[in-house]
Nucleic acid binder design. Structure first.
Lengths: 248, 248
DNA sequence: GCAAAAAATATTGTCAACAATTTTATCCAG
DNA sequence: CTGGATAAAATTGTTGACAATATTTTTTGC
């Protein structure tokens, strides 16, 4: 069974609670399923291309097919899932150009976020961010990759929230969730790890502390370029040269 | 009837074609309804707060309630519509802080777009943009406000497409559609018109033509600040001081 | 045995009836 | 009249049965 239905094992965690009141809690249930699938993607547990069948997933979460269907539609709108008519939903597989665009968009948005923060961040916030980086480094040092990854993403997310622009942080939230799909699809097989450089995070805070927003934005953009550089985004799948793949 | 069901008259245009093939065209039908409502918002025909009842709208478009419901959900995800449980959908009413964030996000994203364009725009594209500006000016000169407005939005949209970043242009698409809602909600009652300054558009192209991406981005940001400045975004509805409103 | 056709199965898409909730209208006491 | 309870209507939310399509398996002709 474990081998036959891998998707079931992958999207693990506590079972979705049955609705208590007859209505009203149900939208929370919908949100919970959405977030659990989203979290599975963030945790690199759901690779691109994974088929998401309605009946098995609905049974797994203990909801009707109609509700699950709604969740899939929402995930599709967030571009975490691709829905093709009559052929169901699968975890999105970003193309090379999409992936490049995604990183360029992150540079633009996170650059702006850091620029905003340069003028409004306070000592308490800086202290909190430093604590986060410390925990992140500890996690990686202890080999707890999943925890480190989560903290690393949280660093970017918290920066956005501190900037106080709900529109930009909403956009970034989407991009942060899509990033793992890009990494899984295009990670360089030779590289041991594909993740944020903690030192960059520290350097960004250093720049923010001195009030140098320009410098902080510059480091953030270089930081994202470094992450993108760890990937193999050279050629698109559609243009793969089969002759080259099989020698001669 | 016209007075009793204003929403029906507002979302006008050709009736939705009945599906020809049994399936497949149906998703196009869904898209068509989505776009018609979106267009109505872009044209300032659907003001914030307008109630969108499912049965009347479904009949208007000649589709089932279930299909229309799906469209409303999609519109809600694009933040053009607000859905509250058991209370239906209405055209979104952006708050003051949301509106400010929206403009700040536009400055960040369109600044980045123009920055990208500075390095890759060609003579043909510049020629096309100049033609657009000319038509825009003509429309406003002739008093054809709706046509001018459309061309003005198209200018920003086309710039984004020329930059060739699908993620950024997708985000901007959402922001462009939400902008009319902000304008309708917060336009200064004393102002005669609330719209883009065509001259700014021309100045942006001038800067792009000389290859000065920095300057073009600066003008774009000032351009958006000027548009935001035409609005009355001083206080939030939730903090409206009733005592001040009624004198003493 | 193999490829194409056909049947069987599995999966997604749609709809109409029903349930739950909110909104509006009615009624009645004070 | 007014305010509040009650009933009626309108509106949204859900579900399960069925239709349409895609996928897999079996059959058939060579």
């Amino acid at each position: 069974m474990s081998a036959a239905k891998p998707t079931h094992d992958v999207i693990a965690g506590a079972p979705a609670e049955a609705a208590q009141s007859k209505r009203g809690r149900l939208i929370r249930q919908e949100d919970e399923i959405f977030e659990r699938i989203q979290q599975a993607i963030l945790d690199h547990r759901l690779p691109p291309g994974t088929k998401l069948k309605e009946v098995p997933l609905a049974e797994l979460f203990g909801v009707t097919r109609g509700l699950l269907r709604k969740v899939l539609t929402r995930l599709a709108h967030a571009r975490l899932v691709e829905q093709r008519p009559n052929r169901g939903a699968m975890v999105a597989s970003p193309s090379v150009s999409e992936s490049r665009d995604l990183f360029a968009a992150r540079r633009a948005i996170e650059g702006a976020i850091v620029g905003i923060l340069g003028t409004r961040i306070n000592a308490t916030q800086i202290k909190g961010l430093r604590r986060m980086i410390e925990r992140e480094q500890n996690a990686y040092a202890k080999g707890e990759m999943r925890a480190g990854l989560k903290l690393s993403i949280d660093f970017h997310r918290v920066l956005a929230q501190m900037a106080g622009n709900s529109v930009l942080s909403g956009f970034l939230e989407e991009l942060l969730t899509r990033t793992p799909l890009v990494i899984l699809a295009y990670r360089d097989t030779r590289a041991t790890t594909t993740r944020c450089d903690c030192n960059d995070h520290g350097a960004i805070i250093d720049a923010l502390e001195t009030g140098d927003a320009e410098e902080a934005a510059r480091i953030m953009q270089e930081h994202l370029e470094a992450l993108e550089g760890q990937l193999n985004l050279r050629e698109d799948g559609s243009t793969t040269d089969l002759a080259a793949v099989f020698g001669s």
